[in-house]
Each structure stands twice: as structure tokens, then as C-alpha cells.
Nucleic acid binder design. Structure first.
Length: 855
RNA sequence: GCGAGCGUGGCGGAACUGGUAGACGCACUGGAUUUAGAUUCCAGCGGGGUGACCCGUGGGGGUUCGAGUCCCCCCGCUCGCACCA
């Protein structure tokens, strides 16, 4: 009777279901007294393609942790759900003419089936679908809280319009002028849109990162995205003919110490003052430049980053420090969206200004010298000196180090009335509306006279209306514009007519708070129960891909802080510990013509991949899994061949969770072999009865194995808690190897091992536990305690070095004092040979490690 | 360009705060069991000599009794950001 996962896995999944083994108590009374552990996966977007083996990597990790924590006596919250609103379902809906809700249901059903087959210990009672009206009702409700606090507003703003998607995008979704998800080009357009004032929370979002147990890289990315910089805003007066008013513009600079070196100013093409200060002579040129800049896509603007362009306005401004008249230019290297949209240019000490000055023949004045007093590394005409140093040519700043010069100038700027200190953030208002159907409708109404009225909380949810098609209307309104007037037109309490908002929320909205709803999915009266939220929050471990380092995690933190300010949550931060799993790659195979071949068409020959049919040699490489490269590995197939336990184990055995690593089927075979060996420890394959080696004697009757068992109990727990699953598994393999060669197998030892195996190969562990006569479910047993005395060896082997080179190995009692260890080491013939009769100058004994004899 | 990280056998990877490099697994080789294959079990497996010797953690230097681990320089790869004043 061989190890047959297909026979045992569905059986135990059913038993777990029947016993409701993983249902977390919903009432606080059943929870209190227990320490809590909230372990959460980033909810997947249920795509039509189904799961690939990359998905279960993080899910397996969290499941192992959840199962271990339960055995350790924690109340564990371990939910799963679907981040189910999103563009792909809507595009499929347009293509197939089917409602996106139906497509989404199809996809979530498939995802759920695939995930369930892996035997994860989710509490399925708490499953969440962010696109269900029971859920998005509260997403809308949270939006109303933001709106109430004045954090949401409607504005005519330049937006990122993506023609291919037919919708606007948030800044965070655009990189190099392209939509990060699809690479479709993005252009600037001015539209009336919902915005959220996330910059008001910039400082707190920055400060509170410090207390979080997150990967440094992710914290750094968030810091960069928030982009705090300190400096000054300084006013520059434009020089005009006598009698005219004196317009001023304000610049932002982080280097106020270089004000004496500002030899020109630049306004962004979109700057409001451009038109006013352009002189008649320059008007044609400036207008042409501004028009051209407007027409350029963001992509074109960034592409041309190297070649600076610009045009002189004809006007001059006064440098407040020098009193000199400096020219004012218009150039698109100055961003309208950052700072004030205008800069003072210091070509001597800023690379961008330097490049522009060189291109336009503008003067370059050095005002900072290297700190040591030496010459500039390169002449100021050839390169800007952007480092800190000592101020020169700068009047009252001369001789001051950059730090002091900055402070001094800031004081002066403020006392002279030139401007003021200022902290600037890159983080900008979050563009929060989309011109799509498949999202949360905004719970707001527009009256004919332009007033915005929030929908009553009691009237939520504002449900998605039926529409004939999911495309925008002919006159360019969003798909909701196709809804009937019954939906679109609402009569207010005062009798006025109002129309519903036609935009919907972006996909991020739903994922901003699912972790809160999971703490209490039962209530229908409110978004969550405060007492339960208090008990469960924060999330103790949140696992997902790095791709959400900025977007999802920043948005969720923002909402959470707003909810905190509203007194609706008790924690400042939602996710205490974050862990990013590394992407799983796969081998792909190409023939000489570059055509891809799937795994099934390829065989290994002399260690080289060849085409099965023709023997043609193929090129192989490790790439991201993708349909077009025919290298997607489907968990269903792996489970069919090796079972869920083998898949789970291999996901974690491959290497450290955070690492990017290639999928290798032979590796699955390896862990599957390990599981079969564990099976044979318990089951006699000939008869199906218990292994004849199993005895009723206590564990101590097989002392070496008992020691290995206790080491395994200890290491598996420690490594699992530290998320080092690969080494935990290798320790279990070592135990099974030892057990395989042991003369007898005490039942007690095997029962304890079944419990250790349980978080990882959960189905097999149940089967072994039952066959060994264990009572109840294995996964509900307490985690075994290890005996430290049994984890230590009586005798240990030490390396002995002579002059740092390893020469021999000695066995000593673990408790032996240093001088005894030293004597044994010096007595070794090999050691004596390498000492060449010289007396030892120094002997270093490192406890439990080695002895080094220096001669 | 800037920022972060990483380079260890044929492959995935071990090595806790500097302390016996290569755990565990894959692949490979030999042997046993088997009618044969699969399975299973045992043994070997960094390189070179193939005698108890030398060399080895991307390359070069340094600190140390001792360096994969710490410091400096260089090479290569990955990720993130990219005119943020």
C-alpha cells in the first residue's frame, strides 16, 4: 500500500470541513484569554487564467505559520478573499457580452476550488468578495467618512489619461509615461475627477514606517515615494517697465545656500505667469513652445530627458540676494506638478541647471567650494558641483559650511521677507475616480445647481445598475451613463432632482480595508465590530508580492490612519509585519527560430534540453511564467501527479521565501520522495498494516532517534516562526532519514513527529496520526515541547587547526572544560605533526566549535 | 545616472552574533533487491594529485589566531526610482 496522496488528501479535507477545524470563533467571549495571531495573505485578483504555482507560495507560508500558531495555543485569524473589482473582468465582459459579475463569479469559483485543493486552513466562513454589495456598501461608507473629513474633493485637474484603457490613472500607476500594468501609453488631460488628500498624511505615513517590521526595501520605496524634502520658498519679482504692477513668482529650493549663484529662473510651461511676463518679441516663440509641451505625452517628455529645451520669456527677475537681474525662461524640465512649478536655477551646483545653462549659453557662477579648501574636481564650466562644501561668492554666507549656510540663509530669507521655510513632498493627491463600470459607485449626487450631496448612510449601498453594454456612452460619458434614469436621477428629500456620479472607484479601494472586515464578517449593521477589531488588529503577518510595495500598502495605510482619526480603529498602522515572497520563475524552451515549446514537448538528453519529437536541441532560460512563453506551471497538474502536500512542501523547500527562484519539477519529485519515506515509517507497504518496526516502548528506548526528534521539534518551530521554511523542512528530512535506518520506531516518537509534520504536510500528518492511533485531529493537537537536554549532544566533534588551517578532528565530551579540550587537541598525532615540534604560542578554544593552535 | 540588494559545487540552496564551507534536496556514478523497468535500499559525489598533499565561497588588497561572513577597490547580475529643484 503505497503513499497515495489522491486517496488521503480529499478525505482529510472533508474531515477538517466537517469538524469546522479552522473556523475562528466569532464572539469575543470565545476568544478572550487566548493570545491572538492574525496572519493574512494579500487577496488575489481572480483572473481568468486561474492559479499558477506562484500564488500558493505565500499562501503556503502563511498557512504553515497559522497551523503552527494554532498548535501553540493562539487564537488564529486566517482569512482569504478576492480583490474582485478590476479592469480585466470588465474587458472580458465587453468582449464576451457577459456581465462582469458573472465572469468574476466564474473566476472566483475556480480560484476557490484550486486553493481549497491545497488544504489551506482558511476560515472560509469569512471569505470576502470586494465586489459583493454587502462589502462595497462599506467601502462606500468609508468614502463618505473621507468626504466628511474634507479629504475627498472633486476638481478639474490634469490627469493621467490612458486611451487604451479608456480611463484615468493614479500617479502611482504611471511610470515612464506608461500604465504600469499593461505598458499602454498615458497622456495628460484635464478632467473633473475625485481626488483624495493623501499628502495631508505624508508626514505621518513617513514617521510611522519606523515602528514597522517591514523589509527595509519596501520602507525605503515608500519613503522615496513620499519624497520629503526641506527647503525654502523664495519670491522673485519680475522686472517690468515703470508704472506696471510688479508680478512675483515663487520658487522652491532645497539649496537656499546657493541663492547667490542663481543666474536665471525657469517656469514650467504650464505655469500661470508665463503668459503675463512674456514680452512681445518672445511671444511667438514662447507660445509655440508651450503648445508643443502640452501636446507631448508624458512618455515623450521623459524620453527626451537628456536634451534640455526651453525658451526665453524676454523678462527678467531680481535675484533678491545679489540684486541682479536674471533672465526668466520657460522649460519643460521644470515640472508644473512639483513645488511651485518654478525654480531658481543654480547651474554651478545643480546638474540639470548646468546642462540647461550650457545648452542656452547662460552664465555659471560657483558659490560653493569643496570643504577641504581644494580646487573643484572639475572646472565649473564642465560640471556642476552638487556636493556640500563651503560657501564662496555669497556675501554674508562666505566661509560657512553648506549646513550652516542653509540655516543662515533660511533665517535671512524669513527676516528679509523674501519667503519662508517649507517642507515639500513628492506625494500628490490621489486620483480616485475611474471611468469604468466594474467598481464601487460613488455614493454622491450632483444637483442641477452644481451642489454635491452625499448619499445617506442608510441608503447604502449604491448598487451598480444594469446596463446594456459595459462601454462608455457614445458621447464619452462613463459606462454608468448607460444606466436608466431610474438609477441616474434621484429626488432629494427637499424635492430637488439630482444625478448620480457616473465614475467608479479604483480597484485599490476595496483592498484598502479588507483586513478590517475580516475581523468581523458577520455584522450587517456596521463595517466591523470595534471590540473584535480591537482584539485582532494589527495584522501580525501580512504576506504578498513586492509589486504592492507602494500602491496598495500606501493607500491602505492612508485609509487606516483616517479611520484612526475618526476613532474607528485602535491602531495607527494596519500591518505590523510585512513579508514579500519572491517571484517563482520557470524554465522556458526555444528552438532555433525562437519559437517557444512547452514543458511537455521537451526532454533532457545528455543534460541538454531537446525537442521530444525531432531531437532538435533547444535553448533554455529561466523566465517569468507567462502564457506566451508556455512555461506556466499549474498547481492542478502538480497536485494530480504528486499531491497537495508535495506541492506545499516544495513551494517552501525551494529556497528562502523572499527569494526569486526557478520552479523545477525534479524538486517536487524530491519532496514527494521524502513524504513517501515518512509514510513508510508508519505503514508497511506490503500489508498496509503498521510498520513492523513500530514498538510500544517509550521514545527513550531509541535514544539517538529521540535526540534527533527533539532537535527537530525545536528547529522546526524556531525556523517556522522566523519564516525559514526551507531549513525547517530539511531538518524534517534529516529526521526521516535517521528514522528510516533506526532499528525500532517507538510509536510515541512517530506520533510526536506527525505533529511536527502537521503544519507542513498536513494531510499526510493526519493520516499517520490516525494510523498511529492518535485521538482527534492531528492539526488540533498541541505543539510538542522539546527537551533542551535532549537537543544537546553528549560528545561533540571539534575541528583542530594549527595556525588557522584545519588539521584534525577530535571528539570530546560536550561538557569538557577548555583546558581538557586543549589537552586532547595537543595530543593528536596529526596536530603534533603540523606543529613540527614547536611549542604552542597561543591556543584558542571556541566552545563547541574548534581549537586553534598557533605556533 | 541615483538608491537598495545579491554573487557559495553540474543545479536549488545550507553555514545562528567572524569559528570544522557545501546541511537538505535534485542531477550524476557504482552496488543491492527485482524476470525487466519503475519503486526501494546502501555507498560515492567542489577541483586537482588520486598516498595521510595542495587549491577553493565573482576578482584584487586589508583587518584577525581565524573571513563566505568585517573594511577598501574592481567586475558581474537583479530590483526600485528616474528632470521631484
Amino acid at each position: 500500500m503505497r503513499y497515495d496522496p489522491s486517496a488521503i488528501e480529499p478525505k482529510w479535507q472533508e474531515q477538517w470541513d466537517n469538524a469546522r477545524a479552522f473556523a475562528t470563533p466569532t464572539s469575543l467571549a470565545d476568544l478572550s484569554g487566548k493570545p491572538k495571531f492574525y496572519v493574512l495573505d494579500m487577496f488575489p485578483y481572480p483572473s481568468g487564467a486561474g492559479l499558477h504555482v506562484g500564488h500558493p507560495e505565500g499562501y503556503t507560508a502563511t498557512d504553515v505559520v497559522a497551523r503552527l500558531k494554532r498548535m501553540l495555543g493562539f487564537a488564529v485569524l486566517h482569512p482569504m478573499g478576492w480583490d474582485a473589482f478590476g479592469l480585466p473582468a470588465e474587458r472580458a465582459a465587453v468582449r464576451e457580452g457577459i456581465h462582469p459579475a458573472i465572469i468574476t463569479k466564474r473566476n472566483t469559483d475556480n480560484f476557490r476550488r484550486q486553493i481549497k485543493r491545497l488544504g489551506f486552513s482558511y476560515d472560509w466562513d469569512r471569505e470576502i468578495d470586494t465586489s459583493s454589495k454587502e462589502y462595497y456598501r462599506w467601502t462606500q461608507w468609508i468614502f463618505l467618512q473621507l468626504h466628511k473629513k474634507g479629504l475627498a474633493y472633486l476638481a478639474e485637474v490634469p490627469v493621467n489619461w490612458c486611451p487604451a484603457q479608456g480611463t484615468v490613472l493614479a500617479n502611482e500607476e504611471v511610470k515612464d509615461g506608461k500604465y504600469v500594468e499593461t505598458g499602454d501609453p498615458v497622456e495628460r488631460r484635464t478632467m473633473k475627477q475625485w481626488m483624495l488628500k493623501i499628502p495631508l498624511y505624508a508626514q505621518r505615513l513617513l514617521d510611522d514606517l519606523d515602528g514597522l517590521d517591514w523589509p527595509d526595501g519596501v520602507k525605503e520605496m515608500q519613503r522615496n515615494w513620499i519624497g520629503r524634502s526641506e527647503g525654502a520658498e523664495i519670491d522673485f519679482a519680475v522686472v517690468v517697465d515703470a508704472g506696471a504692477s510688479r508680478p512675483t513668482f515663487r520658487v522652491f529650493t532645497t539649496r537656499p545656500d546657493t541663492l547667490f549663484g542663481a543666474t536665471y529662473c525657469v517656469l514650467a510651461p504650464e505655469h500661470a505667469l508665463v503668459d503675463a511676463i512674456t514680452t512681445p518679441v518672445q511671444r511667438a516663440a514662447v507660445e509655440a513652445y508651450v503648445t508643443a509641451a502640452k501636446q507631448k505625452t508624458d512618455l515623450a517628455r521623459t524620453d527626451l530627458a537628456k536634451d534640455k529645451t526651453g525658451v526665453f520669456t524676454g523678462s527678467y527677475a531680481l535675484n533678491p540676494a545679489t540684486g541682479e537681474q536674471i533672465p526668466v525662461w520657460v522649460a519643460d524640465y521644470v515640472l508644473a506638478t512639483y513645488g511651485t512649478g518654478a525654480i531658481m536655477a543654480v547651474p554651478g551646483h545643480d546638474e540639470r541647471d548646468h546642462a540647461f545653462a550650457k545648452a542656452m549659453g547662460l552664465p555659471i557662477v560657483p558659490v560653493v567650494a569643496p570643504a577641504g579648501g581644494g580646487a573643484l574636481p572639475t572646472p565649473i564650466e564642465d560640471a556642476a558641483f552638487a556636493d556640500d562644501g563651503v560657501s564662496v561668492n555669497s556675501g554674508f554666507l562666505n566661509g560657512l559650511a553648506t549646513e550652516q549656510a542653509k540655516a543662515r540663509m533660511l533665517d535671512h530669507v524669513e527676516s528679509a521677507g523674501w519667503g519662508s521655510r517649507r517642507v515639500q513632498y513628492k506625494l500628490r493627491d490621489w486620483l480616485f475616480s475611474r471611468q469604468r463600470y466594474w467598481g464601487e459607485p460613488f455614493p454622491v449626487l450632483h444637483t442641477d445647481d452644481g451642489e454635491i450631496v452625499a448619499v445617506e448612510e442608510a441608503a447604502l449601498p449604491v448598487e451598480l445598475p444594469p446596463v446594456d453594454e459595459f462601454k462608455p456612452t457614445g458621447d464619452g460619458r462613463p459606462p454608468l451613463g448607460r444606466a436608466s434614469d431610474d438609477w441616474q436621477v434621484v429626488t432629494l428629500a427637499d424635492g430637488r432632482k439630482a444625478r448620480r456620479e457616473l465614475n467608479t472607484m479604483p480597484q485599490w479601494a476595496g483592498s484598502c480595508w479588507y483586513y478590517l472586515r475580516c475581523s468581523d464578517t458577520a455584522t450587517t449593521e456596521k463595517a466591523w465590530d470595534s471590540a473584535l477589531e480591537n482584539y485582532w488588529m494589527p495584522v501580525d503577518l501580512y504576506v504578498g508580492g513586492v509589486e504592492h510595495a507602494v500602491l496598495h500598502l500606501l493607500y491602505a495605510r492612508f485609509w487606516h490612519k483616517v479611520l484612526f482619526d475618526c476613532g474607528l480603529v485602535a491602531t495607527k498602522e494596519p500591518f505590523q509585519k510585512l513579508f514579500n515572497q519572491g517571484m517563482i520563475l520557470a524554465y522556458s524552451y526555444q528552438d532555433a527560430k525562437g519559437r517557444y515549446w512547452g514543458h511537455d514537448d521537451v526532454v533532457e538528453k545528455d543534460g541538454k534540453p531537446v525537442l521530444k519529437a525531432t531531437g532538435e536541441p533547444l535553448k533554455s532560460q529561466i523566465e517569468k511564467m507567462s502564457k506566451s512563453k508556455l512555461n506556466v506551471v499549474n498547481p492542478d497538474d502538480v497536485i494530480a501527479d504528486y499531491g497537495a502536500d508535495a506541492l506545499r512542501l516544495y513551494e517552501l523547500f525551494m529556497g528562502p521565501l523572499e527569494q526569486v527562484k526557478p520552479w523545477q519539477m525534479a524538486g517536487v519529485e524530491g519532496v514527494s520522495r521524502f513524504l513517501a519515506r515518512a509514510w513508510r515509517l508508519v505503514v508497511d507497504e506490503e500489508t498496509g498494516a503498521l510498520n513492523k518496526k513500530v514498538t510500544e516502548a517509550p521514545s527513550s528506548s531509541e535514544p539517538a532517534l529521540q535526540k534527533q526528534l527533539h532537535k527537530t521539534i525545536k528547529k522546526v518551530r524556531e525556523d517556522t516562526e522566523a519564516l525559514r521554511f526551507n531549513t525547517a523542512i530539511s531538518q524534517m528530512m534529516t529526521f526521516v532519514n535517521d528514522a528510516t535506518t533506526a532499528a525500532t520506531l517507538p510509536r510515541e516518537t512517530l506520533q510526536l513527529f506527525a505533529r511536527v509534520l502537521s503544519p507542513y504536510a498536513s494531510h499526510l500528518a493526519e493520516e499517520l496520526w490516525a494510523r498511529l492511533g492518535g485521538q482527534g485531529l492531528c492539526c488540533q493537537q498541541p505543539w510538542p515541547a522539546h527537551d533542551d537536554a535532549l537537543c544537546a549532544d553528549d560528545t561533540i566533534t571539534l575541528g583542530v587547526q594549527v595556525n588557522g588551517k584545519r588539521r584534525d578532528e577530535i571528539a570530546v565530551p560536550a561538557a569538557a572544560p577548555d583546558d581538557q579540550v586543549q589537552q586532547i587537541a595537543l595530543a593528536s598525532p596529526l596536530v603534533q605533526k603540523f606543529m613540527e615540534g614547536k611549542p604552542p604560542k597561543k591556543v584558542i578554544v571556541v566552545k563547541g566549535r574548534l581549537v586553534n593552535i598557533v605556533v
